[in-house]
């Protein structure tokens, strides 16, 4: 999404709220001048936040959120319902005061790949692009052998190594902790792919599922029918993306974004709702009453590669 489009989104959203255009401009101007003074200090301290601070309000897609009615709370209810309540509570707060976290309970994950597949379907991922693979690891040696299944979404690091390396400032961290990619700005250099210590970014090479498929219209389900999926738009970052004619997201780095369009509408990420073992939890870690905040505090919660200093927002329980 270009800067102009982001500004338009911001303008629309601002008008949807009670804030008048004058107020908005007033705050905007103050922000600009304040930013000029503070910017020098802040940019040196937090380079990865630079983009978010610059356009912070523009990226808050959630001001238009209207909570929907959930069933009343009752003991023994599905964790999904509690997480949805947590989500609604979080969305009422300003974006800067939320911090999205994911917790994956490795003891409950059965390695069914439902999350990977549903993520691919939700985001219309082409072949070779994957946001959340489930890694199977054998541990130990016979006869003492164990098996670990490790779903690996983007870690949405608080110190994301993928952000400062981007020459085009096409990737940055939102105030709510999600690291996003601006497809319209990304030049496709793949530096961020190399910089990620979790291999969490993949490149859209423009490959299609129907490449090399038989083309026999009217005879059997041929290329044109099967290929319908390829032309379906995805709605990442609250915009319609159609993969055609080498246009973005073809030629871009792509990654998990915690299903921003879903969570901004009060829905949990696709991988959370499709997990058959309820092994994946999601919510606002900065809310002490949320389920994820409780889980993160467990003594057996851990994060991947703590030693590299990326401070991931994704926790695991073992």
């Amino acid at each position: 999404m270009s800067k102009e489009e982001l500004s338009k989104v911001s303008e629309n959203l601002t008008l949807e709220t009670d804030e008048s255009r004058r107020d908005f401009l007033d705050k905007f101007t103050k922000g600009i001048f304040g930013g000029l003074v503070a910017g020098g200090v802040v940019s040196a301290l937090a380079p990865v936040q630079a983009k978010a601070n610059k356009d912070g309000s523009n990226l808050n897609f959630s001001t238009a959120f209207e909570p929907f009615v959930l069933p009343p709370e009752h003991p023994g209810e599905d964790a999904i319902l509690r997480m949805m309540r947590d989500l609604q509570r979080a969305l009422k707060k300003p974006i800067e005061q939320r911090h999205w976290n994911m917790v994956i309970d490795l003891r409950k994950c059965v390695g069914c790949d439902a999350c990977s597949v549903s993520c691919a379907a939700e985001n219309k991922l082409p072949p070779g692009v994957i946001y959340r693979p489930v890694i199977q690891q054998e541990i130990g040696s016979y006869p003492n052998v164990g098996h670990v299944t490790l779903p690996r979404p983007c870690m949405q690091c608080d110190e994301p190594p993928c952000v400062p390396v981007c020459p085009a400032e096409a990737t940055w961290k939102r105030p709510d902790g999600i690291v996003i990619v601006d497809y319209d700005q990304c030049i496709g250099c793949r530096y961020c792919l190399n910089a990620c210590p979790y291999d969490a970014r993949t490149f859209d090479f423009g490959v299609e599922y129907i490449d090399g498929a038989a083309d026999a219209p009217k005879v059997f389900l041929g290329k044109d029918k099967a290929g319908k999926y390829e032309t379906e738009a995805s709605f990442e970052y609250a915009k319609e993306w159609k993969r055609e004619d080498d246009k973005s997201p073809i030629g871009n780095a792509r990654k998990c974004h915690f299903c921003i369009p879903r969570i901004e509408k009060g829905m949990l990420p696709e991988c959370v709702v499709t997990c058959i073992g309820r092994a994946t939890y999601f919510g606002d870690g900065s809310d002490p009453d949320s389920l994820v905040a409780e889980l993160i505090a467990l003594p057996n919660a851990f994060r991947l590669k703590e030693e590299v200093g990326t401070h991931p927002s994704v926790y695991y329980i073992k």
Binding site: S116, P127, G128, I130, P133, V134, I135, Q136, Q137, L150, R152, C196, P197, Y198, D199, T202, F203, F205, V207, L304
Partner: peptide, 15 residues
């Protein structure tokens, strides 16, 4: 691989 076993988690010639 950054995480052991990632190559066989989701199989494709670009992975």
């Amino acid at each position: 691989p950054e995480i052991k076993g990632i190559a066989s988690a989701w199989v494709h010639s670009k992975l």
